[in-house]
C-alpha cells in the first residue's frame, strides 16, 4: 500500500548501507538465553572473517553468562532469518552471504540458561 498523502510521498530510507561508513549491520541472537534481553546489533566490515565474530565480537558481549564459556562452537546450530544455516568460519561475512541487516541466531544444545529457565 502507499501512504495516503496530499502530494507525492517519497523519502530516503534512513538506514541505507552507505550510511554506515563501510560497515554493515549484523543482528545476532542467542537462543534460550534471555538474560540478554534482546538480540544484538553490530556494525561490522563485510570483509571480516566469520571466525572473528565468534572470537573477537561475541565474547565481550556474552561472556557475563556462565554458559558462554561452555559453548562448543563445533556443535552450535545456526539460523539465518529463522531458517537453518551453516556458516563457514574461515570465510568473510560477505562470502557467507550475509547482507546488510541480516539476522542470525545460534542455539547451543544442552545449554539452556540459568537453572534451565532459558534465561
Amino acid at each position: 500500500m502507499v501512504v495516503a498523502a496530499v502530494k507525492e510521498y517519497k523519502f530516503e530510507p534512513l538506514d541505507r548501507l552507505e550510511n554506515f561508513h563501510g560497515n554493515q549491520l549484523l543482528y545476532v541472537g542467542w537462543e534460550d538465553h534471555l538474560m540478554f534481553c534482546a538480540p544484538f546489533c553490530f556494525p561490522l566490515s563485510p570483509q571480516m572473517p566469520f571466525r572473528a565474530v565468534l572470537e573477537q565480537v561475541l565474547p565481550g558481549t556474552y561472556d557475563y553468562h556462565p554458559d558462554f564459556s561452555k559453548i562448543d562452537w563445533g556443535k552450535v546450530e545456526w539460523f539465518k532469518s529463522g531458517k537453518p544455516w551453516r556458516p563457514d568460519h574461515d570465510r568473510t561475512l560477505d562470502e557467507n552471504g550475509l547482507k546488510h541487516k541480516d539476522v542470525i541466531r545460534f542455539r547451543t544444545p544442552g545449554l539452556t540458561g540459568i537453572k534451565g529457565s532459558c534465561s
Binding site: M1, V3, E12, N23
Partner: peptide, 21 residues
C-alpha cells in the same frame, strides 16, 4: 510497516543512528 513502508523506512532508530555517528 507492510501497510505503509514508505513511512517507516524513515524510522529514526537510536541504535542505527549511533552507528551512523
Amino acid at each position: 510497516f507492510d501497510h505503509e513502508p514508505e513511512k517507516y523506512v524513515q524510522s529514526w532508530l537510536p541504535v542505527h543512528q549511533i552507528y551512523q555517528g
